[in-house]
Design a binder for these strands. Structure first.
Lengths: 206, 206
DNA sequence: CGTCTATTTGAATGTACTCAAAAGCGGTGG
DNA sequence: CCACCGCTTTTGAGTACATTCAAATAGACG
């Protein structure tokens, strides 16, 4: 999972820039508080197609993507994968259900590209909640956002056809088509790779 | 929306029992704190098929269902309804997106049965967050749950066929088939009423 | 350059949809 | 209390669209 030869280089003071910026969007913390958070983060450098979480183990962490791209997914009885979330730069990813209930994860998390991740363990997170009460609010806001996003996605998956959903996805993430293999986007949209391929042809002929 | 002739009768001390019980599941509050919450709740008695929130108005409240059943739904361009949530007794409902961002709601909320609702307005809620810090945690936990639930539903809607999703819904809410019209359950599952009717026939022949 | 995987294409199949009509059910007023 | 009306649910037939399976092509990587 960890690699020694690697191509992300950070000046010591730049490694947490993205994380700080991300947290600042929701709550205002002091430098000391940021340092407290940074003290409990672990950097994980993942090569493409490496696993950060495997179904069946308890997910005891939150991961922040500094660089690269991860996906969380479940595998059904017939071996088909269903993608719950893509996490690009500046996004958080976890198996919340497993994290909260401390039960074996039903999701797996894997890198799609070589990725640079910051991980915070649950026990550290809980400690942070006590020493930095504002983080409770931060977490609430993060969850609110995540909830609204997944609800919108559910609604769309029920109400609009796959072709439009794909077009909307492209509008929101213009680079997803080049960065993420078609097979994963299909698994995200809930259709077969063949169908998505045909949808692409249709869209490009317009 | 409000009705004068009505068939829910409460002893003064029983009206908030269900609400207290619901909050106690997540955080431990003092009687004084409960009273503070109760002081800002408004009881709303809704007849069947009455509206609590209409698409386009800002949703500035959280509603708790004491008795009865509500649904939140969106209407797409072609007039088709898609149900986001059913809220039975002991459940919360709102248009979180509208509530959070204070923008016009994309959802509507309506009663399915005669219902007894407790409403808390956002401004009061924010005040409560300040005077009862534990409520911040309560809200976080509520959101965590809601998030996990909607994510599971999204995952199921992508990965398992409507027939199994309906069977699972019945296992979780055995009374939904009698309390909620087929047409709404179909709108919840994302299929046509005709298809759900055929699914019912198949299931009952087993 | 060759192998392995991802993507595209084609044809046949099946499932869910639409449209139309009949049956069932609940509520209302005579 | 019963007859009627409107709405919900069921049933049927034809259709459209996504899927499956199979094969060809294109791309990525050592």
């Amino acid at each position: 999972m960890l690699t020694d030869k690697w191509h992300f280089y950070y000046l010591w003071f730049a490694m947490y820039d993205c994380l700080r910026h991300n947290i600042k969007q929701r709550v205002l913390l002091s430098d000391r508080e940021f340092e407290e958070i940074e003290a409990v983060t672990t950097q994980v450098l993942l090569k493409k197609k490496c696993s950060l979480l495997t179904e069946g183990t308890v997910c005891d962490f939150f991961a922040f993507v500094n660089k690269g791209c991860l996906r969380s997914f479940s595998v059904n009885g017939k071996g088909a994968e269903h993608i719950v979330q893509f996490a690009f730069e500046d996004n958080w990813i976890s198996d919340l259900q497993s994290y909260i209930e401390e039960k074996p994860a039903t999701l797996s998390i894997e890198s799609i590209e070589d990725s640079d991740i910051l991980v915070i363990r649950k026990e550290d997170m809980e400690r942070l909640f006590h020493s930095i009460p504002l983080l409770e609010r931060w977490m609430r806001l993060l969850l609110q956002n995540a909830y609204v996003a997944v609800q919108r996605r559910l609604n769309h998956s029920l109400s609009i056809p796959a072709e439009e959903r794909y077009a909307a996805l492209l509008r929101f993430h213009p680079d997803i088509a080049t960065r993420v293999p078609l097979i994963h986007i299909a698994a995200y949209l809930g259709i077969t790779p063949e169908s998505l391929s045909r949808i692409r042809r249709q869209l490009s002929s317009k």
